[in-house]
């Protein structure tokens, strides 16, 4: 297993570490995720809050990478930036070798559509659409339409064990089933990156375990890189690396 390189910045030494750390960083094109000196500041009126204080992170292709930390530590902000949903105040982010922080909005949207699958804590399924249609929408965004999209949606649902629930509305599905629909949706178009936000938080132990197994399968058998925000200690068992974020700074935790 290739270890992920973690560059944890200290509050007082961020500027000097940026220079020294960057010289040690390998070419971003070989990594799934590379994050260099990312800072994020939120302002509200005259108030200013620095959510991220200089993040350095590298994730190998095919790894399951956990991002853990207490509430308000900056996990969601970092995940949003790594997914290209938020633009950082400073720093650069490379996904699959491409710098997304310099992309236009439309190019970034296309990049996300082609390369990233999302799994959300609240599932974020469209309540008015059936399970199959929820997957179909994601395929449509990736440019797959009509009969082909319907066929692929059905196949993906079968892969997550929900082939017989294709026509069910989310309200008729259990929490575990909803999350599996969300995973099927995330897998549409064979993304290279899966970004999962607390994928087991709303599930009981048994269903959570099934989802964990599915994610492990994706990484190890399908070659997906999985970046996951979680509080669930069970997932540590399948992760290649675990990083902690606290007060906007990353800390490496040894798995062993």
């Amino acid at each position: 297993m290739t270890p992920a390189k973690i560059n944890c910045a200290e509050k007082a030494t961020i500027p000097s570490q940026v220079g020294s750390s960057s010289t040690k960083l390998v070419n971003p094109k070989t990594k799934a995720i590379t994050c260099r000196g990312v800072k994020m500041v939120f302002t509200s009126g005259v108030e200013r809050f620095q959510a991220l204080k200089g993040i350095y992170l590298e994730v190998q292709k095919g790894d399951i990478h956990l991002l853990m930390g207490p509430s308000g530590s900056g996990k969601t902000t970092l995940m949003s930036i790594l997914a290209g949903i938020l633009t950082p105040t400073a720093g650069r982010v490379y996904l699959l070798g491409e710098e997304i922080t310099s992309m236009s909005r439309s190019k970034l949207a296309r990049f996300r559509a082609q390369n990233i699958g999302f799994i959300f804590q609240g599932f974020n399924l469209f309540p008015a659409l059936t399970a199959a249609e929820n997957v179909e929408v994601a395929l449509n965004i990736k440019g797959i339409w009509g009969r082909s999209a319907r066929k692929q949606a059905q196949l993906l649902l079968e892969q997550v064990g929900l082939g017989d629930k294709a026509m069910s509305l989310p309200r008729d599905l259990s929490g575990g089933e909803k999350q599996r629909v969300a995973i099927a949706r995330a897998l549409s178009g064979n993304p290279k990156l899966i970004m999962a936000d607390e994928p087991t938080a709303a599930l009981d132990s048994q269903k959570g375990h099934a989802v964990i197994e599915l994610l492990r399968f994706l990484a190890k058998e399908k070659g997906c890189t999985v970046l996951m925000v979680t509080h669930d200690p069970r997932i540590k068992d399948v992760a290649d690396r675990v990083v902690y974020i606290e007060d906007g700074l990353l800390h490496l935790e040894s798995k062993e």
Binding site: R105, A109, R110, R112, N124, F126, V137, I141
Partner: peptide
């Protein structure tokens, strides 16, 4: 709103 946000996150363009 969350559904529209999800569409955007999944890569739907503004025009979609």
């Amino acid at each position: 709103l969350k559904e529209f946000g999800t569409l955007k996150a999944m890569g739907a363009s503004d025009w979609v």
